[in-house]
Simulated assay, not measured.
Amino acid sequence: MFKNKTHLIFCLLLAMLTILVAACSSTGNETPESNKKVESEKPETRTVKTIHGDIEIPANPKRIVVDAYLPTLLVLGDKPVGATKQDLDNVHIQDLISGIESTGENSMEKILELQPDLIISVDAERSTFDKLSKIAPTVIIPYSTYSGAHEEVRAIAEMLGKNKEAEEWLATFDEKIQQQRERVQAVMGEEETVSIFGAFGKDSYIYADGIYKGGQAIYRQLQLAPPERIKKELLDAGESTKRVSFEVLSDYAGDYIFFDQSNGGTLDKQDPVWKSVDAVKKDNIFYLDQKRFWPYDPIAVLAQAEEVADMLVAKKKGRK
């Protein structure tokens, strides 16, 4: 009987030792795999250069809140969770914004509620950056950072790892622009010029090829020619706009004039100065829809190029 008990105890001890060794062995074998699993669960990031230094952002952000660059995100296939009211009012993207919540005029409370993992904003105020960066990694891209649609799409694509999507969209963009350019070239004389004027508040402005009033579409994309004085004083000088007195508008007038009225600015069409302009006498005036020609994003620029081409072709054909 004593031998039986001894044998039983020995068997139990042996079984326990076997289990303990197996457990240790298993633990030892799983440690590297566990580490790999932990490492794989760590979110990947990338570093981008900004006006506030290097910022570490998610490599594949899932909840972006944006201010001013909504259309560019959309062409890259990144639909943000939130955007400003002004972004969402853009007439050119109304079929693309379902499900995006409004942050009003950058309401901090609303942005916090949306729990973003990345914020992209145009507001260059340091205080705004400080507030936003407490919510999520924040990249500030001030107005006029990019000179045109291609630069903007490629720069933001680089930041988000969307280079392939950018090139595919830009290829389509270039093809459509070329079609509109050819339509215009078929009806416009080689020496004919185009001006962009505006009444903004109480002031009068001339616009070039920057972010204002369809300038990118008219001069950069359709490659319409400005009068020599606009070319010299604005385009060649790298200026996007120039405030002038109403009395000298005729000095900058092209054969065709696109006119914008915004911020309460109005044009007195009976003013003798205006009526003396040759393009006015020939009825070569196009009055711009403020909502359609205020945006300057890549989607808007393409739409504006198509509309300007339509205007010019219709005007030319109407005379034949």
Rank of each mutant, 00 (worst) to 15 (best):
L8R: 11
I9T: 09
C11Q: 10
T18L: 15
L20E: 12
V21G: 01
C24K: 13
S26H: 14
G28S: 12
E33M: 15
E33K: 15
E41D: 14
P43R: 03
P43M: 01
T45C: 02
T47V: 11
T50G: 03
T50N: 05
P61D: 05
R63M: 02
I64W: 03
V66Y: 01
D67I: 10
L73V: 06
D78A: 15
K85I: 14
Q86K: 15
Q86M: 15
H92C: 03
H92I: 08
L96M: 15
I100D: 09
G104Q: 04
E105V: 13
M108R: 14
E109M: 08
K110I: 15
E113H: 11
E113R: 10
E113Y: 12
E113V: 05
A124S: 13
S127M: 12
S127G: 05
F129A: 01
D130T: 05
S133Y: 08
K134H: 13
A136K: 11
T138M: 07
V139N: 09
I140R: 05
P142Y: 04
P142A: 02
P142H: 08
Y143Q: 12
S147V: 12
G148F: 05
E151L: 03
E152T: 08
R154W: 06
R154C: 13
I156A: 03
I156E: 07
A157I: 06
N163S: 15
E165K: 11
E168P: 04
F173E: 04
D174M: 06
D174S: 03
E175F: 11
K176N: 14
R183L: 14
Q185F: 00
Q185A: 08
V187T: 08
V187M: 06
G189I: 01
E190T: 12
E191I: 07
E192Q: 11
I196E: 09
A199D: 06
F200A: 00
G210M: 04
I211A: 14
K213R: 15
K213P: 00
Q221P: 00
L222F: 05
I230L: 10
K232A: 12
L234T: 04
A237K: 09
A237W: 05
G238P: 07
E239M: 12
R243N: 15
V244C: 01
E247F: 02
S250P: 00
G254H: 03
D255P: 05
D255S: 10
D255Q: 03
Y256K: 07
I257K: 01
N263D: 14
T266C: 07
D268G: 03
D271K: 11
W274V: 08
K275V: 11
V277K: 07
D283C: 10
N284D: 10
I285K: 06
Y287V: 14
F293C: 01
P295T: 07
P298R: 09
P298V: 01
A300P: 01
Q304D: 09
A305K: 01
E306D: 13
E307M: 15
D310M: 05
L312C: 08
A314R: 14
K315E: 11
K316I: 10
R319P: 00
